[in-house]
Write a protein that binds this DNA or RNA. Structure first.
Lengths: 365, 365
DNA sequence: GGCACCAATGAAAAGGTTTACATAATTCGT
DNA sequence: ACGAATTATGTAAACCTTTTCATTGGTGCC
């Protein structure tokens, strides 16, 4: 096939430079460059670039020639070259403590959705709490492979922060777990208010001896939820006292919390759990001791993880609007990315109480 | 601070070109380039590059000067420039049908682990079955933003394939769901053998009327598991017939499969389910009909998702070695990435039978 | 002492874009 | 019909590396 008015290169959906029969086999067809397009369209590479990025600046006639040439070569701009030139990567790094966290998929879906909608890619980094890994992932930022950072780790991974001037921080937003110094943006559920609602629900059912089973110590979200629990209790007419049992955020932690509890003689009638995993462990432990939930004990969780409605009894819990959290966080980050710094706004979302079957009036109510 | 023997720039952890007091505030400190390092070390940029990439080629004395300069500037090579020059991105795209698939975190962890170990990043793409999104994500490949592809979608996302010459395919490997034409590499569990083991286990407990609840039609893994089920049944002495009930891979699908089944008069005594989610739905439905699992019916799942041991009865199932699958797949892909094409090997891993509490001898055994 | 060789370094090209600036061509007003 | 203003296009620099090739200076050998 000879194309009049151009050199005699053969074009399929990519361009081969020197057409020997050997090349046909070995050369893995070099992708077309802007120069190939320009040559075929009979214009300069600047015009090709303009045709793509600001078509209004190029004459109708040339525009047609160029688009035709692009179609024929199957040209797609080399992202590396673009990124180098434009000093950005259109890529956001998500640093997660654990990919297996049941909250993760929902959040990621939200993050991804808006990132993708704005032409950004999402790079994930699973740290498992390993600081070395964290630093490794951060190199994606310092090398320019990523423009911004979404933190699901609950702490700022920059060594030596907050000693250093905050100007050195990359654009980032925290999600799911609040970060201790509130100097960086955060999007999450209103833990205090939601835990309060959960506890009030138990009170409204007639419970007065309500225990809180915490998450791992140091987990800020756990403290917030405990605070909500305390507030609800304080505001109730019954003069009931706070009752905090240490858990660790896993179902095992919930189990062992119950084991330890049953050494004592006085028992609560209801449990507010730091999260659903804990609640599931609590329920399992109670059941294996021969108790019925919710007849003997009421249990309420937090998160509404996908399996909360699959256990029996199905779990009453607080729903985290995971998708929305992810979307808002990414939107916030992306909005401010061009400015290279994002304002430290805290956005708290409402967590709905999802009533299922794990709570009822207390037995000896 | 004045540094003798160099120009009088001030260096913190990045370099500022023109030091006016205004710049100090507005300029967001441009990261140091190789040129900055070279100037300070008093060598050419080539030498700096060599010091980093092939230290043995540069003299001890200069090496020390350069490393000192690097330390002082906090220089990190710009990944974009490197990638442009070296024609690769050190980035792998993972195309998933659904991030919320309970198998996803485990696989991703495996993928990530070896990718990260080899200096690669993992870019995730959540398609939700949307072909438009798929194509969008594929642009990461065609623009050179990613070097390779991991498919969790069960089909090749290249439009028009397999009509086109396979040379046009990017380097990729399928995982979790096999891809129909076996022309691309696949790493996964041996569905047939594992389902056979599961079924044989039920047979060994004394069951003879065993039903298979399938996944969505078209799901190759479901067909494979059904085949394993058939094989076990055929080989058993009892002349029992195959019994396939359509599910869709979700717990809802499992539920509705049971609903439909109970219209009939003859019932199986055990169920082999396409996956754990289905099994959980099946168990839930049986329980809400007042039956006891495993006393009245035995149910066996497939996958061993994290919650399989949290439901009651805890689920007997086949474990997918998710981490290992991810690791092997990524290793295979990365091994062949330089060659720009990966051999279409199929690697099948053994799936262990995890015996828990959802199966027992049949009631009227 | 001259020659070949080797080690260490530098100069410059290449990788593929975007875009400021310069230039050429067109239109318009007078 | 001529300069000004406008529009369309091209030239070349810049983005930051890596790497080939050439150059330099030094060493060992005859």
């Amino acid at each position: 096939m000879r194309i009049p008015g151009t050199d005699s290169r053969r074009l399929l959906c990519a361009v081969r430079e020197h057409m020997t029969s050997q090349d046909l086999k070995t050369q893995p067809l070099r992708p077309a460059t802007i120069e190939d397009v320009a040559k075929i369209a009979g214009v300069s590479i600047a015009t090709v670039s303009r045709t793509i990025r600001s078509p209004e600046k190029v004459a109708e006639s040339t525009r047609k020639k160029v688009t035709a040439a692009i179609a024929r070569t199957g040209y797609t701009a080399n992202a590396m070259a673009q990124n180098l030139r434009m000093q950005r990567s259109r890529m956001v790094m998500v640093l997660a403590q654990s990919i297996s966290d049941p909250n993760f998929p929902g959040i990621l879906t939200g993050l991804e959705k808006v990132a993708n909608g704005r032409g950004y890619g999402v790079l994930i980094g699973n740290t498992e709490g390993d600081v070395g890994l964290e630093e490794k992932y951060l190199s994606f930022l310092s090398t320019g492979m990523a423009d911004g950072l979404v933190l699901l780790t609950g702490h700022v991974p920059v060594a030596g922060w907050p000693k250093n001037p905050e100007a050195a921080l990359p654009p980032m937003v925290a999600v799911l777990r609040p970060v201790s110094p509130e100097a960086i943006a955060y999007v999450g559920v209103d833990d205090v208010a939601a835990a309060k609602v959960a506890t009030e629900y138990l009170i409204s059912l007639g419970h007065s001896r309500i225990a809180f089973i915490s998450g791992p110590s140091g987990e800020i979200a756990s403290d917030h939820r405990y605070r909500g629990y305390c507030m609800a209790l304080s505001e109730s007419s019954d003069q009931s006292s706070f009752w905090k049992i240490q858990g660790d955020g896993t179902s095992e932690g919930g189990r062992s919390a119950i084991e330890r509890l049953f050494i004592r003689d006085s028992l609560p009638t209801a449990f507010v759990c730091y999260n659903d995993s804990t609640a599931i462990g609590v329920i399992g432990s109670l059941q294996s001791r021969g108790y019925d939930v919710p007849r003997d004990f009421s249990v309420i969780g937090f998160d509404d993880i996908p399996f909360a409605h699959n256990i029996s009894p199905s779990l009453t819990t607080i729903r985290q609007p995971r998708g929305q959290i992810g979307e808002l966080a990414m939107a916030h980050l992306l909005d401010y990315l061009p400015r290279r710094t994002v304002p430290a706004e805290t956005t708290l979302l409402h967590g709905d109480l999802i009533v299922r079957d794990s709570c009822s009036t207390p037995r000896t109510g």
